[in-house]
Design a protein around this nucleic acid. Structure first.
Lengths: 141, 141
DNA sequence: GCTGTATATTTCAGTCATGAACGAAAGGCC
DNA sequence: GGCCTTTCGTTCATGACTGAAATATACAGC
């Protein structure tokens, strides 16, 4: 007779996850970064080379126009530059600047500290469980 | 030597949040509602009476200006109306319209279906575990 | 070589969110 | 009554995100 728990669960999940995002965002803020901007820098560092905007959109699981604007902002802060792709004149690649690398490094430090603090109260075994449970939610059998 | 798992967990949490929100949002979309708008309607129905915008902001854990705009949109769709508070001339209360109630009811049906589907693969016991783990994350000991 | 179709980015309009600054009203205090 | 501070809602600027429409280039098939 109790239809409520499911709804309560969803609301709480969203609330908890929202709080986590907020903490990470707060950790990045002193470095002048947002999670969105940091993620773009992170992908560029991981790739080790300039990436076409479409690739960034794909890896971020977001729409292309979002990346256009995100890169606009990053470029206006001189963290990346837009560079032509010599092999495809439609394509534009985002390339890290030296300052972009520095900010990324600062971001990594900030976010790792925040994550250690965030997960400090959760033993590794329980972290595993949490991961499994969340994954179970995403792939309905 | 492996510093990565923590970061992976956080990324995964954020991914899950996005996935869950996305599914609920998609369920609401055919009814012409977003999660944000639905939540306002939900609070008004739960309260059983018109609520001051400040109260809505507090219960949504968001800033007041956000509610101002949300109520602007809801009002332009004729789902709520702004009514003066006779006891406090600063205060403005959001009041459900008949259409607002109908849309809320439709939203409840849509979102409950989506939530049942979302949690179908997760036995009740594991739902509890998930909740406990997330709560443990929020209150560092 | 042209034509059509697909791909890559941008632009624009709209939603949802934040924070600072503002005007209006309420309430406490003397 | 007249001040001072707080509270309430709004406005404005900005960020992050979406989806539709426009533009430019690439490429396959004829």
């Amino acid at each position: 007779m109790n239809e409520r728990p499911v709804a309560t669960l969803a609301a709480e999940l969203i609330g908890s996850l929202h709080a986590i995002v907020g903490r990470l965002e707060a950790a990045l803020e002193p470095e002048g970064l947002s999670l969105a901007k940091f993620n773009v820098l992170r992908m560029l560092v991981a790739a080790g080379e300039p990436l076409p905007l479409g690739a960034l959109a794909e890896r971020s699981a977001c729409v292309r126009s979002n990346i256009t604007q995100l890169v606009d902002r990053l470029e206006s802060e001189k963290l990346v530059v837009r560079a032509d792709d010599p092999h495809d004149r439609r394509s534009i690649r985002a390339e890290l600047t030296a300052e972009g690398r520095r900010r990324h490094a600062a971001g990594v430090r900030a976010i790792e500290a925040a994550e250690r603090e965030l997960f400090a109260g959760l033993p590794p075994k329980e972290r595993e469980s949490l991961l499994h449970l969340l994954r179970a939610l995403q792939s309905p059998p």
